[in-house]
């Protein structure tokens, strides 16, 4: 299927790995992603003026008009902003997580399994709430992990806040909130948000932090290790 693609700024830099992973997994699922031409920043969580934020995010929808109706947006902050900017629901804004379902997970070519390994699927905030912009299947990462034989831990912490957006403002806030999550979970941390990835990576000692796309590519044999 054809989709418009909005990578967002961090996926061109620090979260390049997520960008590459999303593109590879989508290709494996038979989806073709085409970037919105000349896309701009969504404004993230940095603007106090909602009209201004919506106009910055909405610019991207104007650029997609007449080209794409279905737009895949991996970064949760971008996903929320573009969904909010699409007030008349002219587009279908999708997280790559929404392209996954039990059917295509089961059909996925499986070269490695996850048996004997423990994973903590960690969604963070913006994929889970507010309800109007949240993903529909809030267990999709668990579904993916268990489909391939992995064990799940830390379910109660999966939607708690890591304080990722305070990392460069008040790092003690991020440290305290991340440690709370880390102490109440175990295993490899599986995330889908660049903020969460950085917060977990910064404060997790001796635990792997991966994107769900890394896990899927490992299962499909595209990555040699997790």
């Amino acid at each position: 299927m054809e989709y418009g693609y909005y990578p967002g700024c961090s996926l061109t830099g620090s979260a390049k790995k997520l960008d590459q992973g999303v593109r590879q997994v989508c290709k494996k699922l038979g989806h073709n992603l085409t970037e919105i031409p000349d896309w701009n920043c969504c404004g993230a969580l940095e603007y106090g003026d909602r009209n201004e934020l919506m106009s910055i995010s909405g610019e991207n929808l104007k650029k997609a008009e007449g080209i794409h109706k279905e737009i895949v947006v991996p970064c949760p902050a971008c996903y929320k902003n573009l969904k909010d900017a699409d007030s008349d629901k002219s587009f279908n804004i999708l997280s790559p997580l929404e392209l996954l379902n039990n059917e295509n997970l089961l059909k996925m070519e499986q070269k490695n399994d996850l048996k004997g390994q423990v994973f903590f699927p960690y969604y963070g905030c913006l994929l889970m709430r507010p309800e109007g912009s949240a993903i529909k299947n809030k267990n999709i990462m668990e579904d993916a992990i268990s489909t391939f034989g992995g064990d799940i831990d830390g379910e109660k912490m999966k939607d708690r806040c890591c304080g990722g957006n305070q990392l460069f403002l008040n790092k003690w806030v991020t440290e305290k909130l991340s440690n709370l999550i880390l102490t109440k979970s175990k295993g490899t941390i599986v995330v889908f948000c660049p903020f969460c990835h950085m917060a977990m990576k910064t404060f997790a000692e001796g635990r792997k932090v991966i994107y769900l796309t890394d896990l899927l590519l490992y299962v499909m044999g595209e990555n040699k290790s997790l």
């Binding site: 061109t12 830099g13 620090s14 979260a15 390049k16 790995k17 000349d38 896309w39 701009n40 603007y47 003026d49 009209n51 201004e52 106009s55 910055i56 610019e59 650029k63 460069f168 790092k171 950085m198 990576k201 910064t202």
Partner: peptide
């Protein structure tokens, strides 16, 4: 005190030139 995190942040490093968007007009 962020310098101590640099070893953990190496995987985020990578150079690319900035891309300038042609069309954007914000109230900011």
């Amino acid at each position: 005190g962020y310098i101590k995190f640099l070893p953990k942040w190496m995987e985020y490093a990578g150079f690319h030139f900035p891309h300038k968007v042609k069309r954007i007009r914000t109230s900011h």
